[in-house]
């Protein structure tokens, strides 16, 4: 279980990205974090594993306080939090296998990792994960030879090889086409359920968030403005999160399923945000 209390972050530039966020994510819950660009979504998940150092507040994972850990302690705590990135963040010039195995870096010593002599169990687990994400036989391909969806699968495998109890997912679909986006989200959902993993997923696409998350948290200017089940997200609430706009086409009706031609009719606004996120 992840507990966040009064988390605040002020950048040296003076920007207050987070203004005292409190949040509890129970074991196995998939939570989507939505909000406009610059709302602090990215900062929030990076404060959890302290890739960004929070200015104030406490983060506790499974009873262990993350904030205040020494460097060494932090490295060990990070092993419990797998992170998945928007631009995949694979080491492009390494092979798929090396990328996946890099998920074990927190567990093996330097020389082992230097000579790529990972424990047999780790390698076996890596193979199993590659099978599971649908990339069997890709282990010797170089990461920069893969398509976007394949790269994200490698990213997922890398995060899961850490044997985490929590996944921090930063815009997993922002660089993907709509169909691949759904496949990736579905894969994440299935994997979380199989392994009882909690996940915080930053996502721009409200429809996708509603489809795959169990809980939605809306962030605006560093503050939580909505926290509840996906089906309760209404036009009003979206206005509260994102500001004034015609939201009637965006929201998924509770019973609708199947593949709509456009997953989000408000493609213009969302795509613009996506592009903004890409730059």
């Amino acid at each position: 279980m992840l507990v966040i209390e009064g988390l605040a972050k002020q950048y040296p530039t003076g920007d207050r990205a987070l203004k005292g966020v409190s949040l509890t994510v129970p074991k196995g819950q998939i939570m989507a974090l939505i909000g406009p660009s610059g709302a602090g979504k990215s900062t929030l998940i990076r404060c959890v594993n302290r890739l960004v150092e929070p200015t104030a507040g406490r983060v506790t994972l499974d009873g262990q306080p993350i904030t205040g850990l020494s460097r060494r302690g932090l490295r060990q705590a990070r092993r419990k939090m797998g992170m998945i990135f928007q631009e995949f963040a694979l080491v492009e010039r390494l092979t798929v296998m090396e990328n996946v195995l890099s998920g074990r870096l927190g567990y093996v010593g330097f020389w082992r990792s230097w000579f790529r002599r990972f424990p047999e169990a780790d390698v076996a687990a890596a193979f199993a994960l590659l099978d599971r994400v649908g990339l069997a036989g890709f282990e010797d391909k170089r990461a920069d030879a893969l398509s976007g969806g394949q790269r994200q699968r490698v990213g997922i495998a890398r995060a899961l090889l850490q044997h985490p109890s929590l996944l921090l997912v930063d815009e997993p679909t922002a660089s993907l086409d709509p169909k691949t986006s759904r496949q990736i989200m579905r894969l994440l959902q299935e994997l979380c359920r199989e392994r009882g993993l909690a996940a915080i997923i930053n996502i721009h696409d409200v429809a996708l968030a509603q489809m795959f998350a169990e809980r939605i948290v809306g962030l605006r200017s560093g503050e939580i403005v909505y926290d509840g089940p996906p089906d309760d997200v209404s036009a009003d609430i979206l206005t509260r999160i994102y500001g004034e706009e015609d939201w009637s086409q965006t929201i998924r009706l509770p019973d609708e399923d199947g593949e709509p031609e456009m997953p989000h009719a408000d493609a213009g606004a969302v795509n613009r945000e996506r592009l903004a996120g890409l730059t």
């Binding site: 990070r78 939090m81 992170m83 990135f85 080491v91 010039r93 890099s102 990792s113």
Partner: peptide
């Protein structure tokens, strides 16, 4: 590319592992 380094940092790698996995392949 900072994100590649960040990814290695997020796995809990040490400073030298960071150099070996996150930096070295990019500048080699």
């Amino acid at each position: 590319d900072r994100s590649q380094v960040e990814a290695i940092r997020a796995t809990g790698g040490s400073w030298f592992q960071l150099l070996n996995y996150g930096v070295q392949p990019q500048v080699m």
